[in-house]
Design a protein around this nucleic acid. Structure first.
Lengths: 217, 217
DNA sequence: ATAAAAATTTAGGGCAGTCTAAAAATTTTT
DNA sequence: AAAAATTTTTAGACTGCCCTAAATTTTTAT
């Protein structure tokens, strides 16, 4: 068995590797896990001993096959619990992450599988992120950012790149929910903000900052 | 906030105090928490400093009002999660305890209250144990043990005193489920075993060991 | 190409919770 | 009521994970 802390490091390495090119650095891990670089170094040595990461001193870090399997297991649990919290208990998509951070470490394999069945085998969590398979495969999804869509096209909001409660609450307030249809009417050449029509109704101005963090297809 | 370990000690002190007369001893706590007496002594000092227990060296231990409130909160969470696991996910009453031991430490107050509502505000967990109120009150229940019921009376199985998977699986096998009606036909004077009729159908022989651990009304 | 800056690791230590061994207090036995 | 047995506490140490400060390596700038 692995500790909560080890699971969190593996998960964080996975996320950072998916987001950046190349190896994951000690400093970026320290920032993400809200610890100091010295503590990260300690843990990396330990994870390398357990063969969960490839690690050469000063060279950054990469998950081994086994490490990635474990990371995806944790991410699967996290996202399934998020679906439960949102769909069954009525929590908002801005509230579920923090609780899922704890629930993802509950150890029973059978629990998460029964929960998955109870929820009807959901494909995506409340933020539109895909749920890894029980075997530990991350489904491929190819969405664009709203900031990259051309004028005139109509797309559907499929996910978010930024998961902070503040951002999600902002989307709630403006009505940019998952699944809503968005037609790009105009792109401001100066600040790259976008003017969009939502669900064939009202028009909305979306900053580039927001548009960059909205995934659409 | 309190650590998992502290919560577990408080819960265990509550259970031992409810079961025994007088103060709870260091040794009984060591046995229940699967640690050594020396470790218990350490923790008792710490809990006493935090005013969660009354503690005089060598004299055993008792929960303060605040300590009991916390213990009942943990027990409430445990039992609500057990209901979820049994009712919604289909786990057997012999399987739910272990998972609930982890789930009971999830910190969100709102989570357990929403879960409670989702489950329809259950009064009892899958073993018939009452669920403490959100305010931290343990409902009073007055059941008898099957071993104390007179010949001829018909009673209903309301709970168990022994919670081990082995005992619960034995009950499953013999059909002595929660809620089933039991008429005492005969009590063997030698070994105090009981012959009972279940649900007006088949007759069953129940050892005193089992009868002592069955709560009925 | 070398000096300065930045990133990373090592050294040494802290805290929570556990342990064993030994000391102290309480309870039981005679 | 003293001796023996039992229970409990203290002392000292270990592990996991974190820290600060110092040393080392890599990267960047000149």
């Amino acid at each position: 068995m692995h500790s909560f802390t080890e699971e969190n490091y593996l998960k964080t390495i996975y996320y950072l590797a998916a987001r950046q090119e190349g190896e994951v650095t000690t400093n970026s891990l320290a920032e993400m896990t809200a610890t100091k670089a010295a503590s990260v170094s300690d843990m990396l040595r330990k994870l390398a001993e357990k063969q969960l990461i490839h690690y050469k001193k000063y060279q950054g870090v990469r998950l081994t096959a086994e490490g990635e399997r474990l990371a995806l297991k944790v991410i699967r649990r996290h996202r399934i619990w998020e679906v439960f919290l949102a769909e069954k208990l009525g929590f908002g998509w801005d509230e579920v992450h923090e609780m899922a951070e704890e629930l993802e470490h509950i150890r029973s394999e059978e629990l998460v599988e029964k929960l998955d069945a109870f929820l009807g085998y959901p494909q995506f969590d409340p933020h539109g992120d895909p749920i890894p398979s029980p075997a530990g495969q991350m489904p491929a999804v190819e969405y664009s950012k709203l900031s990259e869509v051309g004028v005139g096209t109509e797309v559907q909001v499929m996910g978010v790149l930024e998961h902070s409660p503040e951002f999600l609450q902002h989307l709630d307030k403006t009505g940019l929910n998952l699944g809503c249809r968005v037609r790009v009417q105009d792109i401001n050449t100066f600040d790259k903000s976008v003017s969009v029509q939502i669900n064939q109704e009202k028009t909305l101005f979306v900053s580039n900052e927001v548009a960059r963090n909205l995934l659409v297809n």
